[in-house]
């Protein structure tokens, strides 16, 4: 990570305030490492933009990505709990604009959570809950689907495992009858041996 931390990303995304941007740029002028990283980020951003242009998406396709990124970021948050308040003012309120294509306007201003991003959106539920009932329903539905699928698969696997044992009675092939039947049907082999086949005399067993 560079000295600027996430502000570097924000800078590349063009989401820094005027003052912050000047400060960041000034730092870049002096720090070769940060400059290199900023270049790299810009390249990545350019590539991602190129990618996102590939599918003729009306924006709907980007939704999961957006959400996914939000979650990723919120997961990373506790690892850097010292994200200071001043950063909250400067950090992008809309973290997931990859390639600068903002696709979920309802998420952009986090209402009721002061300026900047919500302090704790780790469960990803609260911010979303406040963000709109549509997202809420979608999440609920997702949990429901996952739960139902798990239940279904679990029951299915259990049933499959339980159904493995056979309900088969122990049988002994009726060798004498088989020998006769074989001789009778196998074309021009003689009809003789069913009665003389030693197996017949040794092994006589009732039919199934």
């Amino acid at each position: 990570m560079s000295c600027l931390g996430e502000r570097l990303t924000a800078l590349v995304d063009g989401e820094l305030g005027h003052e912050e941007r000047d400060r960041a740029l000034a730092h870049l002028a002096g720090c070769a490492r940060c400059r290199a990283e900023a270049d790299e980020l810009r390249q990545i951003k350019g590539r991602l933009r190129g990618l996102s242009r590939l599918p003729a998406s009306d924006g709907a396709d980007d939704l999961p990505t957006d959400d996914f990124l939000t979650r990723l970021r919120s997961l990373a948050e506790p690892a850097a709990p010292a994200a200071p308040d001043d950063a909250s003012g400067t950090r992008p309120a809309h973290p997931g604009t990859l390639g600068g294509q903002s696709t979920r306007p309802m998420r952009q201003p986090v209402r009721g959570a002061g300026p900047g991003r919500p302090r704790d959106n780790r469960p990803a539920g609260r911010a979303v809950a406040s963000a709109g009932s549509g997202a809420l329903r979608r999440h609920q539905r997702r949990y429901l689907v996952v739960g139902a699928a798990t239940l279904f698969l679990g029951l299915g696997a259990a049933s499959y495992a339980a159904g493995g044992r056979q309900e088969a009675p122990a049988v002994t092939p009726a060798f004498d009858r088989f020998a006769v039947e074989h001789a009778l049907t196998s074309g021009d082999t003689p009809m003789t041996d069913p009665l003389t086949d030693p197996v017949n005399q040794i092994q006589t067993s009732p039919g199934p």
């Binding site: 088969a168 049988v171 009726a174 088989f178 039919g207």
Partner: peptide, 29 residues
């Protein structure tokens, strides 16, 4: 292929050799 109700008798041949396979439900005693 024939059946006596419980056992299926399958007759195979290559023209010369005759092979009968008797298939029945159950586990071998």
């Amino acid at each position: 292929a024939r059946s006596d109700g419980a056992t299926v008798h399958l007759s195979y041949s290559d023209g010369l050799a005759a092979v009968s396979v008797f298939v029945q439900r159950g586990s071998l005693d």
